[in-house]
Write a protein that binds this DNA or RNA. Structure first.
Length: 309
RNA sequence: GGCCCGAUGGCGGAGUGGUGACGCAGCGGACUGCAAAUCCGUGCACCCGAGUUCGAUUCUCGGUCGGGCCU
């Protein structure tokens, strides 16, 4: 038999991990990470990864399995997650995918364009071109090969502009063309989802409290260790909320209070963006609009009563 | 008690006799390979009262509050 697939999305500090664990225990399932930063080994505290104790309660996959020196991408995650999900299913167990990265869920449910990895040399060259040309000229050049992309990409969005050029430069086909077809999506109807959307005030209060706890219980040491690795600041790990703030504190540029306040603010903004994604992209996902482990479980069971069938 | 200075949106901070700069925060939004990223949009603010004026946030007078100095 093949197990079921459950998807649990929600903003930071909304209680996703706890719900996933409870569900995993209830159905004998395995948990798969869909969070772009919990992927990395370096930041257990700051990325709020499940504790070692939690990990003994149910099998966890793709949590802290990647070295910070490696920069993963949605595509890389999609392939890894796809393999893990297939494997768990083949063993007849339920899969519970949890995370806060909307794009990852998008890749899972809608698929991703089949674009090969862009060689580093091409990416570097494109970055240089962008700097040399400036946005206007860069757009003009891109318009010649991918007019649709130029039209859809917002002003100032260097990241997407250079991505579009990279794809054409490396493959000879436009990004828009590639995106006409996608692959890797879970079969429609093969999964059940839930999106946690707690009241904003309460969520922010939890974010603030959790950041305080992180700072008090290891976040500083963790970042200090990460800092000593001297990694490229453009790597994803280096962009986790709190890393920049703690680094500037460790360097003496900011006192602890200020760093904590700044990290809290960044966290709230991040949560807001996640909620915007859910509102706009996960429109048909059922919501769990309460907060708290028991309330979540009650709402979840009410939504999917035949859990242990 | 006397003299001087200041009073602008949640905060900081320009400026003008007639479209109320800008930054930050907040809020809204986008999102197919860096996504905890990247980016876009958004402000019914000029302390109160009277006066001058076609018109006052801007000028005058009075008041209130804040800051400084003096006796």
């Amino acid at each position: 038999m093949t197990g079921r697939i459950w998807l649990i999305a929600g903003p930071t500090a909304s209680g996703k991990s706890a719900l996933a664990l409870r569900l995993a225990q209830a159905v004998g399932g395995e948990i798969v990470n869909a969070d772009a930063l919990q992927l990395y080994a370096d930041l257990r505290v700051l990325t709020a990864r499940p504790s070692p104790e939690d990990e003994t309660q149910a099998p966890h996959h793709l949590f802290g399995t990647v070295d910070g020196a490696d920069g993963w991408s949605v595509g890389r995650w999609q392939r890894a997650a796809g393999a893990v999900i297939a494997d768990i299913g083949a063993r007849g167990r339920d899969v519970i995918v949890v995370g806060g990265t909307g794009l990852y869920f998008h890749a899972l449910t809608q698929g991703l364009a089949d674009v090969p990895q862009i060689p580093e040399t091409v990416r570097q060259r494109t970055a240089e071109d962008y700097d040399a040309l400036g946005e206007a000229a860069f757009r003009a050049r891109l318009a010649a090969v991918d007019p649709a992309a130029v039209e859809r990409i917002a002003p100032g969005d260097r990241q997407r502009l250079t991505r579009a050029w990279n794809v054409h430069a490396a493959t000879g086909r436009s990004l828009t063309d590639h995106q006409l077809s996608t692959q890797g999506a879970l079969p429609a109807g093969s999964w059940r989802a839930v999106a946690l959307s707690p009241p904003r005030e309460a969520l922010y209060a939890r974010c603030d409290a959790r950041l305080g706890a992180m700072f008090a219980h290891g976040a500083l040491d963790e970042v200090s260790r990460l800092m000593s690795r001297g990694l490229d600041p453009s790597l994803p790990v280096m962009k986790a909320v709190g890393v920049r703030e703690i680094i500037s504190h460790l360097r003496g540029d900011m006192d602890l209070e200020a760093a904590l306040a700044a990290a809290r603010q960044e966290t709230r903004r991040y949560a807001k963006r996640q909620m915007t994604w859910m509102r706009g992209q996960m429109t048909d996902w059922p919501r769990l609009d309460d907060l708290g482990a028991d309330a979540h479980w009650r709402q979840f069971v009410a939504l999917y009563p035949a859990l242990t069938d």
